[in-house]
Design a protein around this nucleic acid. Sequence first.
DNA 1: GTCTATAACGTGATAGAC
DNA 2: GTCTATCACGTTATAGAC
Lengths: 194, 194
Amino acid sequence: MTPVDHPRTNTRAEILKLAEGLFQTKGYNGFSYSDISSVLGIKNAAIHYHFPSKAELGVALIRRYRDLLKATSGTFMKTGENPRAQLEGYLLFCAKREQTTDYICPIAITANDYMTLPKTMQDEGIKLSRETLAWLTRILQEGREQGVFTFDGYPADKAILIQGALQGAGELCRLKNPGAMDATTRQIKSDLSV
Amino acid sequence: MTPVDHPRTNTRAEILKLAEGLFQTKGYNGFSYSDISSVLGIKNAAIHYHFPSKAELGVALIRRYRDLLKATSGTFMKTGENPRAQLEGYLLFCAKREQTTDYICPIAITANDYMTLPKTMQDEGIKLSRETLAWLTRILQEGREQGVFTFDGYPADKAILIQGALQGAGELCRLKNPGAMDATTRQIKSDLSV
DNA sequence: GTCTATAACGTGATAGAC
DNA sequence: GTCTATCACGTTATAGAC
C-alpha cells in the first residue's frame, strides 16, 4: 500500500476507506474526524473540505455499502441465477466480511445509532434495509417456486428472519461467540432444507 | 408518577431508569450525563456521586437487564415448564419491549458499541449473551427431546439463529419495517413447527 | 482548489461547599 | 452524605492562508 504521499492526491478516497472501517467497527458516534486525520497525516479540519459535515460523510458511507451490495449482486448474486447460488453468495459475503474484518452489518449499525443520526443518514439506512429485504424476499420466493428451498409462511417473513439473524450473528461474534456466523449460516440452510 | 421531589430521595433509582431508556434507544455513546441531569433537575455532576464514572453506570445498566431476564425466567420462563411456553414467553417479552418502547436488545447495543466500551462493560455484555444463549439452547434441546419442537441440526446453532434474529428484528423495526418483530416471531415458530 | 489556525461548544470528571 | 462550581479535553465546524 502507498504510504502518505506529498502532494496528496486521492485524499477523498483514503478518507472514505478509513471511515468505512471506523464506522463499521465503532459506529457513527464512536469515531471522529481526528481518528481519520491523524492516520492520514493531515489536519482534522482538512476532512471538512472533502466532506463539509460529518453527516455527509455518513451518507457517503451507507451509500458506498449500498453500491457494494448492488455490484456484488451483479456477479454471484446475479438476477436470474439459481436462487440457491444467490443465497449462498450472500451468506458467504456476510461471513467473509465478518471473519476478515470484524465489521458489523451497516444495516445493524445504522439501526442501532438511528435515534442519534441526522435525517439524511436515517433515510439512507432505510433504503439500504428495504433494498436488501426486497432482494432476499424475491430470491426466497423464486427458490421456493423452483423447489430448491423448503419453508412455510411468507417469503417476506423468512427474508426478515434471515437478514435479522445475519445481523445478530455478527453482533454475537463480537461478544466472544466466535462461531456465531457459521452457526447461523448452517442453520439458515438447514431450515431451508438446502 | 412522582415528579421531581425536594429533598430528592431515590435519585439513584431515577438515574438508572432514565439511563436505561437512553442506553437502549441511543446507545452508550449516544447519551450523556446532561441528558439525565437536565430531566431530573440536578446538575450534570451530581450523577458522578451515584455513579463515579460513566463506565460504572453502563455496567449497572447491563446488569439490570441481566437481572430482569433472570427474574422473568423465574415466572413465565420458569425452568421445568413446558419448553414451548417458555420460548413463547421469551418471544412475547422481546416483542412487547420493542413495541412499547422501541428499545433495542441490550445484547445488540453492547455488541455494536463493543469496540468503544470500557472493559468492564464488555465483560458484562459477554456474560449477558452467554446466559441468554445457554438458556435458549437448553429450552430448544429439551423441547425437541419432548417432541414439541421440530428442527434439524444442533440446538446451539438454532439458539444463535433465534437470538440473532430477535436482535435483528428490533433493528429492522427502527428502519421503518414496523412488522419485522411480528414477522420474525411468526417465522421462528413456523420453522419449529409450533 | 486544498488545507491550517482557531473558534464555540459539549463531554466526562474532580475538588470542595453545604 | 449529597450535590454544585469548575476544569481540561475532545468534538464538529468556520474563516481565511497558501
